[in-house]
């Protein structure tokens, strides 16, 4: 009971913190890898407290599996977008008129890709392990 009440209170803040780490990684410590893991930790905590089947209802495994690939694709297509706009692969200068703004957009996009893939993979691994029990 205590766990469930505390969990309900904590999980939104963990997710918020994950988003903060994700999008504030440019200015402070953090980035996609850490944010993805923290976000996954929130889902896993939910799964531990309320049962894995409830967690699977909140975050359907099918969707998570698509997200695994979506993150990598977002990252790679950011690189390809640079190619199409006439620069090197993963060169973000050309993504906006101002090179620095382009770098900002590029880094934000690829970090988001990283975070998506990391979170999705961690959740999938947890589902795969915990879903097999008994």
């Amino acid at each position: 009971m205590v766990l469930r009440v505390l969990g309900k209170m904590m999980i939104p803040f963990i997710m918020l913190f994950a988003l903060y780490v994700q999008f504030h990684g440019d200015y402070g410590p953090g980035g996609g890898f850490q944010a993805g893991v923290i976000f996954a930790a929130a889902i896993i905590l939910y799964g531990l407290i309320f049962g894995i089947h409830n967690a699977m209802r909140v975050v359907p495994p099918d969707v998570v599996r698509v997200l695994i690939a979506a993150g990598v694709l977002l990252y790679a297509s950011t690189g390809v977008a640079g190619l199409i706009l006439g620069a090197n692969f993963l060169d973000y200068d050309v993504l906006a008129k101002d090179p620095i703004e382009g770098q900002h957009i590029g880094i934000l996009l690829i970090e988001f890709g990283v975070g998506t893939t990391v979170a999705a993979v961690m959740i999938t691994i947890y589902f795969a392990f915990a879903g097999r029990q008994r």
């Binding site: 990598v72 790679a76 690189g79 692969f89 993963l90 990283v114 893939t117 999938t124 691994i125």
Partner: peptide, 19 residues
């Protein structure tokens, strides 16, 4: 994310492959 973006793409691919 920028200077070594290519390496980070590799890292993400590693995680993808693990998943």
């Amino acid at each position: 994310a920028s200077y070594r973006g290519y390496d980070t793409l590799g890292e993400v691919t590693v995680i993808f492959t693990a998943g």
